[in-house]
Design a protein around this nucleic acid. Structure first.
Lengths: 108, 108
DNA sequence: AATAGTATCTTGCAAGGCAAGGTACCGTGT
DNA sequence: ACACGGTACCTTGCCTTGCAAGATACTATT
């Protein structure tokens, strides 16, 4: 069930967040990075390798679009496989969150 | 405030859990590893480097005790600095958890 | 022209989780 | 007596990955 939740954390938490953002609408890396930087302190250098990985895994597809304010943007769009991955990662995340809460006890 | 929450996650989540376990009583690595393996799928090979790191950081102190069922156990005990670290890591964790929840939106 | 902002991507570094293996002690079964 | 499995310690080497820094290039403002 869990496989290896720790690696899941490393590999999955940022990925999950990106998938969640994309589930609300197509977006491009630079903007995703800005939001994630604000939310969880992710660096910009992290996003591009991550997006390529996700594309290689078939979770997202891309298309170019002019922006008028800089170079053309590469928009990312969730695939069906990506939406599925999002679901399963959310449930993994929730299981992990629950496990941590249990370990922490009633400190919460 | 956040510094770098992603690295905080990697470096900190397991550490935080171990600190939390120790806050409920002294324990030895093998048992900690077993509990963590069950809870979040951590491998045994992870615990010993982690414990040494924590000791180097002054978060825990150690003492030996005979067990009668195998080699003597090296018990770890939370230091004051460790208890402090636990508190701050819990609040970091909660902030991170909240940020993720916000990103996920009402999918939860 | 020069700068600043938007937006893409690459490279090199360092941290750390994991699998696998090694050591050693103890009790049980044959 | 001896092998085995469980307890408990620890090390080594691989691989992933997050990050800082820098490179590229287009547009608009000064």
């Amino acid at each position: 069930m869990v496989e290896s939740l720790q690696i899941q954390l490393k590999k999955g938490v940022l990925e999950m967040c990106v998938l969640a953002l994309l589930s609300k609408g197509d977006n491009y890396a630079y903007d995703i990075a800005s939001r994630m930087a604000e939310a969880v302190g992710m660096g910009e250098g992290t996003i591009y390798p991550l997006m390529r990985r996700m594309q290689n895994d078939g979770l997202v597809s891309t298309y170019l679009q002019e922006s008028g304010s800089g170079p053309p943007r590469k928009y990312y769009k969730l695939t069906k496989s990506g939406a599925q991955a999002l679901k399963s990662q959310i449930s993994d995340w929730q299981a992990f969150e629950a496990a941590v809460r249990k370990i922490l006890g009633e400190v919460t």
